[in-house]
Amino acid sequence: ETQAGIKEEIRRQEFLLNSLHRDLQGGIKDLSKEERLWEVQRILTALKRKLR
């Protein structure tokens, strides 16, 4: 995994995270989306740690 590859994956995950946040802010309670949001946040945290 290169730095560029990790950064690209971070961009993808952040896009997905923002999309999930928008969907959930629409007021629709969706447990699967909430679980996915937490999963994406965990992935992002792990990726950012790899960059250090």
Rank of each mutant, 00 (worst) to 15 (best):
V40I: 13
K29E: 06
I28S: 08
E39A: 04
E1N: 09
K33D: 05
E39N: 03
L51Q: 02
A4V: 09
E8V: 03
E39V: 05
E39Q: 07
F15M: 15
D23T: 05
L24K: 03
L44D: 00
V40M: 03
R11M: 08
R49D: 14
Q25C: 15
I28W: 04
E35Q: 11
R11W: 05
E34W: 15
T45C: 13
L37F: 12
I43K: 06
K48N: 06
E8H: 04
G5Y: 13
E1C: 15
R49I: 13
K29V: 10
E35F: 08
E39F: 04
L20K: 00
E14M: 09
I6S: 01
K33Y: 10
L16F: 04
L51E: 01
I6L: 12
T45S: 11
K29P: 09
S32W: 10
L24I: 07
E34D: 04
L20D: 01
L24S: 03
T45E: 15
E39K: 04
R49T: 10
G5Q: 14
Q25N: 06
E8I: 07
D23W: 09
I43R: 08
G26W: 06
N18S: 09
K50I: 15
S19P: 00
V40Y: 03
Q25F: 05
K29M: 09
N18P: 00
Q3N: 07
L44N: 00
G26Q: 10
L31D: 10
L24H: 03
W38M: 12
R12W: 06
E39M: 05
Q41K: 11
K29F: 14
Q41A: 08
T2P: 05
D23C: 13
E14L: 11
L17E: 08
E1G: 08
E9F: 04
I6G: 00
T2Q: 08
E8A: 12
Q13F: 15
N18H: 13
A46Q: 11
R52Y: 10
L20P: 00
D30P: 02
Q13I: 15
R52W: 07
V40R: 00
S19E: 14
E14R: 05
L20W: 01
G5P: 03
I6T: 01
Q41P: 00
D30Q: 02
E14T: 07
I28R: 07
R22K: 12
W38P: 01
K50S: 08
R12V: 05
L17W: 11
R11L: 07
A46L: 07
L37P: 00
L16Q: 02
Q41S: 07
K33W: 12
T45P: 00
R11E: 07
D30A: 02
V40T: 05
L17C: 13
E35H: 10
L44Q: 00
R42S: 07
L20H: 01
L31Y: 08
S19I: 13
D23S: 08
I10L: 01
V40A: 06
K33T: 12
S32G: 10
I6N: 01
I6H: 01
L51K: 00
L37D: 01
R42K: 12
R11G: 03
E34C: 15
K7E: 10
L20C: 13
I10H: 01
S19Q: 14
W38N: 13
Q25I: 08
T45V: 13
I43E: 07
L24Y: 06
K50A: 11
E35G: 04
S32D: 12
H21E: 11
R12M: 06
I43Y: 10
E9C: 14
K50G: 02
D30S: 04
E1S: 10
N18M: 13
L44M: 01
R52T: 10
R52K: 11
K7C: 15
R22A: 12
L20F: 02
I43T: 09
Q3P: 05
E35A: 11
A46N: 08
E9A: 11
L51R: 01
R11P: 01
W38H: 13
I6D: 01
T2M: 09
D30C: 03
L47Y: 00
E35P: 02
E35N: 09
L47I: 01
G5A: 14
I43Q: 06
E8L: 07
Q25H: 13
R49H: 11
D30R: 01
G5V: 11
A4C: 14
D23N: 04
E34P: 02
E1H: 10
R36E: 11
E8N: 06
R12K: 12
G27V: 06
V40H: 04
Q13R: 02
H21Q: 14
I10E: 01
S19A: 13
L17N: 02
L17M: 05
E8M: 07
K29R: 12
L24E: 02
R22Q: 11
W38E: 11
G27F: 15
F15K: 15
K48I: 11
I10Q: 01
L44T: 01
K48A: 03
I10G: 01
H21L: 15
E9S: 04
R11D: 03
I10P: 00
G26I: 07
L37H: 07
L37T: 02
E9P: 02
R22G: 04
D23I: 07
L51C: 03
K29W: 15
K7F: 08
Q3Y: 07
L16M: 03
Q13L: 15
K7N: 06
R42C: 13
I43M: 06
Q25K: 13
I10Y: 01
F15V: 14
I28G: 08
Q25S: 06
E9H: 13
E14Y: 09
L17V: 09
K29A: 10
K48Y: 15
N18L: 11
G27N: 08
D23E: 13
R49L: 10
E8Y: 03
